[in-house]
């Protein structure tokens, strides 16, 4: 698309503003005028070791093809033009969901739709089960993967938000072995992450949600299935007196990365579950909203919306907790 047009600006200093006809701009169109993928070398390793080796060899010239729900549109529009595409769908090692004590490890290749129906996820990670149906449409989730969503690192996406709320850990693998990066530092900028050019996202580890904790995921989008204008994921624990004893609040769609609304968490911790109190505390999230105006929403709207979804999600999670949560 035109956003990718290369611009060589040869304005002389002191020339009038760029919108006047005195400006002389030479444009060279490069990519983004298309709807069929460019040429690339296709590689489809069977093993993780082979995939890692390929990634190490090609570095930033290679892109990983998992579910394809983000990469394929970019390839079709030629907004991405990698020399090598490494298809990891044949790496079956990445397609497991396993519980190990208080941690659930989800392989990067697990399909998003599997999270909606997997009994282990519903019991151990109820926030995921609530969040995943908001990802696109079922036709996307049948193919889209957990690792793909995390690696794409879209701040309006649901899975990155749940990872931040849950204090999940992203597992990366390079030729020198594995390393674990907390979700809070994995997402390090607009559509970027901490995965190095010679590494792959291989799994994400979520702490099991404590028994009795309540969860909620509230999202507002222009249409159901669109990117969130704002969304909030919440895990809450409430004591016998109806006070918050633990609260984790994540917000998607309002900044360059998925946020934790720590101000809101701190203000409510120890306080009673009361709609007015929650609504007032939720307004603290507005200060963290940095996404500017776009064609779907103004910044002012996003601020109010962020507070609204946080308030509603916190109240819903508290209600869920008081009803016993997921068990």
């Amino acid at each position: 698309m035109v956003a990718t047009t290369t611009v060589r600006d040869s304005r002389v200093p002191g020339a009038p503003s760029p919108t006047t006809h005195d400006r002389l701009v030479v444009y060279r169109t490069t990519i983004g005028q298309a709807m069929k993928p460019p040429r690339f070398q296709y590689r489809d390793p069977d093993t993780l070791a082979d995939a890692v080796a390929l990634k190490a060899r090609h570095g930033s010239d290679a892109l990983i093809l998992a579910g394809g729900q983000s990469l394929m549109p970019m390839l079709n529009m030629r907004l991405a033009a990698p020399s090598v595409v490494i298809d990891i769908n044949g790496v079956t090692d990445l397609q497991q969901i396993t519980r190990n004590g208080d941690v659930v490890e989800i392989g990067a290749g697990v399909r998003q739709s599997a999270l909606e129906t997997d009994p282990l996820i519903r019991e151990a990670l109820p926030l995921l089960a609530r969040a995943v149906p908001h990802i696109g449409h079922i036709e996307n989730r049948h193919r889209g993967t957990v690792g793909g969503s995390l690696a794409h690192a879209d701040a309006s996406a649901e899975l990155p938000c749940t990872a931040v709320v849950s204090d999940a850990v992203v597992v990366l693998q390079g030729q020198n072995g594995r390393r674990e990066v907390p979700a809070s530092s994995f997402f390090d900028g607009f559509m970027t992450n901490a995965c190095a050019d010679d590494e792959l996202v291989v799994a994400v580890r979520y702490p099991v949600t404590p028994a009795g904790a309540g969860t909620a995921f509230v999202e507002v989008a222009r249409r159901n299935g669109d990117f969130a204008l704002a969304a909030a994921g919440v895990i809450a624990e409430v004591d016998g007196d109806g006070r918050f004893t633990r609260l984790a609040v994540g917000v998607a769609g309002v900044a360059s990365v998925p946020l934790r609304a720590t101000d809101v968490e701190q203000e409510l911790l120890g306080r009673p579950v009361d709609p007015a109190t929650i609504e007032a505390a939720a307004k603290r999230v507005e200060a963290a909203v940095t996404t500017g105006d776009d064609i779907h929403a103004t910044s002012a709207y996003r601020k109010h919306l962020a507070a609204t979804v946080v308030s509603r999600a916190v109240l819903a999670a508290a209600t869920d907790a008081r009803n016993g949560g997921n068990r």
Partner: peptide, 16 residues
């Protein structure tokens, strides 16, 4: 339907 599940065929390569 891919293995019985609905998917977008524009978002897959034929080789996949």
């Amino acid at each position: 339907l891919l293995d019985g599940e609905s998917v977008r065929s524009c978002l897959m390569l034929a080789v996949q």
